[in-house]
Amino acid sequence: MTSVLDLGADAGELAAALVDIRSVSGEEQAIADAVEAALSRLDHLQVYRFGNVVAARTRAAGNAAGRRRVVLAGHLDTVPPADNLPARREGNLLHGCGAVDMKGGLAVMLRLAARLDQPAVDVVYIFYDCEEVEASRNGLGRLAREHPDQVSADFAVLLEPSNATVEAGCQGTMRVEITLHGVRAHTARSWLGLNAIHAAAPVLQRLAEYQPRTVEIDGCVYREGLSAVRIDGGVAGNVVPDRCVVTVNYRFAPDRTVDDAHAHLQEVFAGFELAVVDAAPAAPPNLHAPAVVDFIDTVGKPVAAKYGWTDVARFAILGIPAVNYGPGDPNLAHRGDEQVDVRQIAECESVLERYLLTVPGPTGRTAAGQPWSER
């Protein structure tokens, strides 16, 4: 049975209802069904469904050549719950899995979609799946590949948690596996074997001694990070293991490409067998793009760097200026005590409403983002 979302409800109540729809990556059908059903009741929107991606755009978009087009985007999925469902409210704080990352932002998008029937620009709302897992499964990436007209725009806002300030660009991410080999033996005669887990010690030592860079771009300071995130090895309690895999995650600044990041890790772990298993590029701040300038002026707060990867990078590849702007402290994402202040949900809604009702109309759209009427 499809959950019924009341888009006229208080922002905090709507966010709580979204939190209560479990949507771990790969399990987004229920929340996608609920979002599609709620948006389909709005006569001023055209609604499309692509798997567990839901896209809606203002009906004027099809014959509004020359108007600026803005995408508001947010992912439907969460990390697995940590005994933090269902949602609970304590004063202005809404607790629950995904409250920060990013169902508070989804509530903003849904309320705006319901209320803004005549915005000053063409608006596209995109709700997508599988953001919290490997990039190859990302629903926004799939939409861009298979239905590029749905994502073409002059400007995009990812409603990722940013404490209701603009967080510019994003870090790139790369995950590699470093494989160590050994020789099996009975642990009673361990000297006849070679322990692959022990062979991982130099890898861990290099990680412990690693000094990450801090990079400033357009006044935004990006801190890099290199972390072991998993170790797999061992056959049985009485066997010297002949194989061990250390998984390492590298978060790199926007001045490095994916190839640069790979080359750096090959240098750091020279002498070891290294394989890339997942990678996504960084995005520069792009603070001088006219559409970004307009939005920053509307928000009226200092800009900061985005720590973590977001789909701002995907829009950057498409040549579309984009920023992160949404409710909630990103430092609380993925935690057992995840929580969002509902006042920030209301603040973000108010700022985005003001922007979408007053933003200048002239378009600086590239060929990749030409008006629908010219396609």
Rank of each mutant, 00 (worst) to 15 (best):
V4L: 14
S162V: 05
A305T: 09
G219L: 06
A37T: 08
L18W: 03
Y48S: 04
S136D: 14
E224K: 06
L158Y: 00
H181L: 06
D122R: 11
E374F: 14
D255P: 07
G66E: 05
L192R: 11
L158G: 00
N286F: 04
C220M: 13
Y355T: 03
A60S: 15
K103W: 03
G237S: 13
A346T: 14
L287K: 11
P212E: 04
N331S: 15
V215H: 09
A9S: 13
V121L: 12
P371H: 01
G104A: 07
A17N: 12
M1Y: 08
L352R: 01
A113I: 04
G271I: 11
V151G: 06
P327Y: 08
V124I: 15
R41D: 04
N52P: 07
A60H: 15
S227G: 05
S190K: 15
E28F: 11
A15L: 02
V79M: 13
L194A: 14
I317D: 15
M1P: 12
N331C: 09
A16M: 07
L5W: 08
V229H: 03
A279E: 15
P362W: 06
N238I: 01
S162H: 06
S227T: 14
Y307L: 14
V258F: 04
A283G: 01
P119W: 10
R57K: 04
A196W: 03
A188W: 10
A196K: 02
G193I: 05
T214A: 10
V258W: 01
A305D: 02
A289G: 07
M109Y: 05
R184K: 09
A289T: 05
G139V: 02
L106N: 03
Y222Q: 08
G66S: 05
V342Y: 03
E131S: 05
H181T: 13
M174Y: 03
G336C: 09
M1E: 13
T363A: 04
E267I: 06
D255W: 09
A199Y: 02
E209C: 07
D10P: 10
G105V: 10
N195E: 01
R115G: 11
E177A: 13
A316H: 08
R375N: 09
A253I: 07
L140K: 09
H334R: 12
P161F: 04
L357V: 00
V151W: 04
R243Y: 11
A283E: 05
G193W: 07
P330H: 13
G104Q: 02
P290K: 10
V351D: 09
R175G: 06
L112N: 13
R256C: 14
Q118L: 07
V70H: 06
A144S: 13
A11Q: 01
A17V: 02
G326E: 03
G361S: 13
D149G: 14
V108Q: 00
A196L: 03
T214D: 05
E146H: 11
N195C: 01
A313C: 09
A107P: 06
A313G: 11
S227K: 12
